[in-house]
Design a binder for these strands. Structure first.
Lengths: 142, 142
DNA sequence: AATGCAAATGCGAATCATTTGCATTTTTAT
DNA sequence: ATAAAAATGCAAATGATTCGCATTTGCATT
């Protein structure tokens, strides 16, 4: 999935091709961690792609509806961050000092979710988890 | 802590008394689950407390700084929600249908956090966890 | 390759939550 | 009771996101 061309990704989602959509996908593919819309806009500008901000919003909305991206809320940044969907979802360690986002190898929620579904009468369909603290580089300052 | 008077809570945090601060604390104390600022404003109005919205924002900012409340981001509501701090922090099951927030008895993150601190070189100081799905009332509709 | 139509885009204006500046009121210490 | 410091109300500013509409683009058909 990560290796598909942006064009193929669009086809796959039944979305029309456009220079702007391809451009956004290209930028998103280069990211190792989620980015804010601001950062995305910056990267677009740095690449001289010239995409209007309202178009970026609209495209992201379409990507979200077609399950191509994930949108979560990062409390330290006080804003949404987005990333291309991976084969299995990710959680991050977020450094309160340098803001770095470090992916956790695997989602630790399986057992917990199972336990909750058994205990409470609740059907779990999604979850959000983020862990805040200080990364190895910044740990010394605290 | 839950049983302290609003006045005592303010004293405790070294915050001056005011009708507005006392009123907000009273309202927050009555809540069983986090509420949005909008909902808080509604409740204030329903009680005829008459507190200007910008004052509400300023007071909440002060409460937050003095660790009297917790502010998290609820994705289903697409906005922040706040609650008075409890002796130990809480997580919620959030129903995607009726929006109900059901507290989880105890935080399930201890082991996970421990594991992460050992594996990765990262010092964990906080986390956010929310679980989305369908509550017992709404489960039948899905 | 030209044409037509639906969908996507750019642009500027509107919206909505949150923040700010400043005059007035309230709290608290004396 | 009084004065200084802090909190509040109000109206205006801000900043992110959304919307309306004219224009452009992608794509299927000829």
């Amino acid at each position: 999935m990560k290796s598909m061309s942006s064009r193929a990704l669009l086809d796959n989602a039944n979305l029309k091709y456009s220079r702007q959509r391809e451009g956004l996908l290209d930028v998103l593919k280069e990211q190792k961690t989620p980015i804010t819309i601001d950062q995305l806009d910056e990267l677009v500008r740095a690449k001289k792609l010239s995409i209007n901000l309202s178009t970026i919003y609209r495209i992201l909305e379409a990507f979200l509806k077609h399950d191509m991206i994930e949108k979560t809320f990062n409390i330290t940044m006080q804003s949404y961050v987005i990333e291309l969907k991976h084969s299995h979802h990710r959680h991050y360690l977020i450094c309160l000092d340098c803001q770095k986002m470090i992916p956790i190898q695997q989602c630790p929620m399986h057992d917990i979710v199972e336990h909750i579904e058994k205990e409470q009468n609740f059907h779990v369909s999604a979850h959000q988890l983020e862990i805040y603290g200080y990364c190895s580089d910044c740990i010394k300052n605290h």
